[in-house]
């Protein structure tokens, strides 16, 4: 089943109430041709399960990895992905766009 962004937040709540650690990633800024608009969500649990997307599948792997650390530490992080950051993150957006993603723990 595919979830829209409202369903994703409901899913995050469900997971948290079931006792799982949860982080919510949100696209907060985009430059150029970004695949998902500002406000889009990816929700991640402590087991690495995830639903939704912040890009067309280009950087989700990296966001999930960061999210696991965010769940662990309880501290939010801001991430940037794009052409300019390829060396830093080793993942880029093939579309040539750039996005900023905030990953927040659910506490």
């Amino acid at each position: 089943m595919t979830l829209n962004d409202s369903d994703l937040l409901a899913r995050a709540e469900e997971w948290a109430k079931a006792g799982r650690g949860v982080a919510i990633a949100t696209v907060i800024e985009t430059w150029g041709s970004a695949p998902r608009p500002v406000g889009s969500h990816l929700v991640i649990d402590s087991e690495g399960n995830f639903e939704g997307s912040v890009s067309g599948g280009c950087v989700e792997g990296a966001v999930v990895a960061e999210a696991l650390e965010v769940i662990e530490s309880g501290k939010p992080r801001n991430l940037e992905f794009g052409v300019a950051d390829e060396t830093a993150w080793r993942v880029g957006l093939s579309c040539g766009g750039k996005i900023a993603v905030r990953v927040e723990p659910l506490t």
């Binding site: 409202s6 937040l9 409901a10 709540e13 948290a16 919510i24 659910l106 506490t107």
Partner: peptide, 15 residues
């Protein structure tokens, strides 16, 4: 974000 805040947001979205 606090779980209680997310629950409140989800309740408003559902309504």
């Amino acid at each position: 974000m606090k779980l209680a805040l997310l629950s409140a947001l989800n309740a408003r979205i559902a309504n």
